[in-house]
Amino acid sequence: MGDPAGIGPEIVVRALLERPDLQGQVVVAGDAATLRRAADVVRLQCGGARLDVMVLGGLREWAHASRPGLALIQACVPGSLAPWGRISAEAGRAAADSIAAAARWVLAGQARALVTAPVHKEALAAAGLPHPGHTEFLQSLAAEHAGVPVSEMPVRMMLSAPGLATVLVSIHVSLRQALEAVTTQRVMDTIRITAAHYRRCGMPEVRIAVAGLNPHAGEGGLFGREEIEILQPAVDRSRADGLHVSGPHAPDTVFMRARQGEFDVVVAMYHDQGLIPVKLLGLEHGVNTTLGLPMVRTSPDHGTAFDLAGTGRASATSLLAAVDAAIWMSRLSQS
């Protein structure tokens, strides 16, 4: 359900109202009172359309449920309703507990894929979660499930919109730390994880472009030697492994070239380098996918939008794109 103080619960309700075909495929991990409140505010914006919230005892009961509506499993401790638009430890804990419950269902093979509504990183921190966001939290849960250290389950964030996909070498760290994270091994790992994802999705010959770190990809060492000493070796070794990789390309044009069809995906060196171009195309169609997990996980490409919470006006378009992507990827991974 995402952060109960944000728009997550409302866009979950709106998504199931707009796409009734999903009502038999989606179960929500969250809080019943929060989702019922969301259903009430969305109904006022949707011409009185009603969506019943059915609280189930578990996934086995969901498998046998036949009537339409929002199937929900209480995944967090029931409490007072979180005030809309406010950061709180209680909201962060409810969101974290819901993520953990849903992730464990998927990891155990009880569900096919996980789609997460937006969370607020400050609320998660206030709740004592030692992870800066979804990606790192899910990595920890998956490593725990597999019985391996987190270091043995490297993951990467991919953000995609129609016409452009980017995968990040580093995620939620400071820019200074992100620059330090650009190593030949991390870039090679990112390329490998990206290729493995596309292979599972039926694209064994995916064309991967590696973005440079410096202006003009270093201009032959004039503006920095990272391209020569770090990135080029990663590209060369990945090619030697049989992957279709090119670069390092000038970062100010590589995303445009990918959108024009020259590449299928761009490996970006840090968070904003890769996400600004995708988000410029429009948040309403963006999908965040975590690569490297032993499960399918997607999310919408926007945040909790505290300023909209409680109005019922938030769009479910990006969430629906994430749900459709999760269904598609989970079918491919099972085939």
Score class of each variant (00 low, 15 high):
T317K: 12
T166W: 03
E205V: 00
G292A: 06
H216P: 12
V266W: 13
I191Q: 03
V323L: 15
A29W: 05
S238K: 05
A146P: 07
A100H: 09
P20L: 10
L81W: 01
E219K: 04
E284P: 00
S330H: 06
K279T: 12
E229K: 13
L70S: 01
V287C: 08
H145I: 00
L280W: 13
L308Y: 01
V278F: 10
T289W: 02
R60Q: 15
W328H: 13
A102M: 13
F223Y: 13
S318Q: 11
A89G: 11
D324I: 00
V169L: 00
L179G: 03
A195Y: 01
G220P: 05
A94C: 14
G202W: 03
I87D: 02
T298N: 11
P277E: 07
I171C: 11
R93T: 06
R200W: 02
G247A: 08
M269G: 06
P118S: 12
L168R: 07
K279I: 14
L114D: 05
I208W: 01
S299Q: 07
F223C: 02
V266P: 12
K121A: 12
Q74I: 06
G212V: 10
I276V: 15
A211I: 04
R19D: 13
G47D: 10
L243Y: 03
A15G: 08
Q139P: 01
A126H: 09
A314L: 05
P130G: 08
L70M: 11
A75K: 10
M157I: 13
Q273L: 09
L175Y: 04
R93M: 08
A103T: 14
G2P: 04
D272L: 09
A95Y: 07
F306R: 01
Q232Y: 02
F306I: 11
S88E: 02
R225M: 12
R14C: 08
A209L: 03
Q260T: 10
E284M: 09
R207A: 14
P251G: 11
T304H: 05
G224I: 10
A82Y: 00
R257D: 15
G30T: 02
A126R: 12
G48T: 08
P248V: 06
R60S: 14
A29Q: 09
